[in-house]
Simulated scan of single mutants.
Amino acid sequence: MELQRLVDTFEFLDNWEDRYRLLIDLGKDLPEFPESKKTEENRVEGCVSNVWLLSDVNEGEPPRLDFKADSDAFIVKGLVAILLKAYSGRTPEEILAVDIEDLFNRLGLAQQLTPNRRDGFVAMVKEMRSRAQALRAESHAK
């Protein structure tokens, strides 16, 4: 589901119960995350729920980052799915150019999430953007 289609779907749903259900469904559709990778080393700091994040560099010209992530909380898994749609398979420049705050607001999440979930979302964004910045710096150093 493209990001705009996701926004359109969220806007189409009248109530937050339906939107939460959609978030949970998005989380259920996450690709399988290896149990062996659910380690402290791969855990995102700043999330109340456990969130694990892996990234691989897809060596191409330009290089792209592929992310895999998972959580032990249903709503957070949905947030993870949204971030994967926004960031995975993109170049560092594309990742850094995504206005995630705008997307967050257009999905109506800013008003509906608890402060802890919002903080966790911000922590995931920071981690993914940090990895994009590191890859960009590495690419420019070559």
Rank of each mutant, 00 (worst) to 15 (best):
E2G: 14
E2N: 15
L3G: 02
Q4C: 06
V7L: 11
D8I: 02
D8E: 15
F10K: 10
E11F: 10
N15I: 04
W16A: 12
D18G: 02
R19K: 15
Y20C: 07
R21P: 00
R21Q: 13
L23G: 06
G27H: 02
P31D: 12
E32V: 07
E32F: 09
P34C: 07
E35S: 10
S36G: 06
S36F: 09
K38G: 02
E40R: 10
R43A: 12
V44P: 01
E45G: 07
G46I: 09
C47S: 05
C47T: 05
S49M: 01
N50C: 10
N50V: 04
N50F: 12
W52P: 13
W52G: 11
L54N: 05
L54Y: 10
S55H: 13
N58K: 11
E59M: 10
G60R: 15
G60M: 08
G60T: 13
G60W: 07
E61P: 01
E61M: 09
R64I: 03
D66V: 15
D66F: 07
F67S: 08
F67Q: 02
K68I: 03
K68D: 13
A69V: 01
A69H: 00
D70M: 05
D70T: 15
F74C: 07
F74D: 13
K77G: 04
G78S: 09
V80L: 07
V80E: 03
A81D: 00
L83S: 02
L83C: 07
L83F: 06
L84F: 04
S88M: 09
S88D: 08
R90E: 13
R90P: 09
P92T: 00
P92G: 03
E94I: 08
I95P: 00
I95T: 12
I95D: 01
I95S: 04
L96F: 06
L96I: 07
V98Y: 10
E101L: 11
D102Q: 15
D102W: 12
L103D: 09
G108T: 09
A110F: 05
Q112H: 15
N116R: 11
D119E: 14
V122D: 06
A123W: 00
A123R: 05
V125N: 07
K126G: 11
E127F: 02
E127Q: 13
M128E: 03
M128P: 06
A134I: 12
H140Y: 10
K142W: 07
